[in-house]
């Protein structure tokens, strides 16, 4: 074990109980190393500017800045770091905003402690979850139908979905698991996972220039 470099994880979460729980779970997992736990965005960003980590877990509801701003800033500071949202429900509007800000996945808070660690590992390996509602919403988003909710219409820099990606989204929206989707499409699970990751990536693309702009506006970049 000791010769494998553990995956470093940082966390920003204002609930001390939840923070302690994550720390405990991550420390208990030998392939993970808990690097830093911050209670607010400012503390995290100060620390983050000096220290590199592999995974950053972000709670969206922070007391000082929005979690979305933290994601944008983090993407700018350490593009190699995977930023992941921790959420109770994985609700559509917040998640899509997070992906547009540059998040690469999300983690449901309500799993058991054992689940949490494996989810972090899975996320780092590229296995982002996607709920049927989000899949459906993304299909609507890319089909350029009038967006009924918070998600803006595709910007000019937004990349189009490939046919495979659309098929993956469609199956997920209809309740099929990644494994079932892979079977139906004649793909491996990891290919399906990489499609999902790419879809999230495309969602974040057009927001990157905006992110830099917004970050300057907010005084996060100097």
């Amino acid at each position: 074990m000791s010769h494998v470099t553990p995956i470093t994880v940082a966390l920003v979460e204002d609930d001390p109980g939840m923070r302690a729980r994550f720390e405990r779970v991550i420390d208990a997992e030998p392939t993970l190393r808990f690097a830093f736990g911050a209670a607010n965005a400012t503390d995290l960003l100060v620390w983050f500017a000096e220290n590199a980590v592999d995974v950053l877990l972000i709670d969206l509801g922070l007391p000082d800045h929005s979690g979305l701003e933290v994601i944008r800033r983090a993407r700018r500071l350490q593009p190699a770091c995977a930023t992941m949202v921790i959420t109770m429900f994985g609700d559509e509007a917040n998640m899509i905003s997070a992906f547009e800000a540059g998040a690469s996945g999300y983690l449901l808070k309500d799993g058991t402690e054992a689940d949490l660690a494996s989810h972090v590992l899975s996320l780092h390996a590229g296995g982002s979850p996607m709920s049927p509602i989000i899949a459906r919403r993304l299909l609507v988003h890319w089909n350029a139908r009038p967006a009924p909710l918070a998600v803006p219409a595709p910007g000019p820099t937004s990349e189009a979905l490939s046919r495979r990606e659309s098929e993956v989204l469609d199956l997920i929206a209809r309740g099929f698991t990644y494994a079932e989707a892979a079977q139906r499409l004649g793909l491996t699970i990891s290919t399906v996972q990489s499609h999902v990751r790419n879809i999230y990536g495309k969602l974040g693309v057009h927001s990157k220039t905006e992110a830099v702009f917004e970050a300057r506006q907010l005084g996060l970049l100097r």
């Binding site: 429900f89 609700d91 559509e92 309500d110 799993g111 689940d115 709920s131 049927p132 509602i133 459906r136 919403r137 609507v140 009924p148 909710l149 997920i172 929206a173 209809r174 309740g175 099929f176 698991t177």
Partner: peptide
């Protein structure tokens, strides 16, 4: 609580979506 939250998500009149969401919750 999850169901209450899910019931508030837009379903686009799609019953399959409701089933799929439930499965997504229960699959683990």
């Amino acid at each position: 609580m999850r169901m209450a939250v899910d019931s508030l998500q837009p379903t686009h009149d799609d019953l399959i979506m409701v089933l799929a969401t439930l499965r997504y919750r229960l699959q683990p």
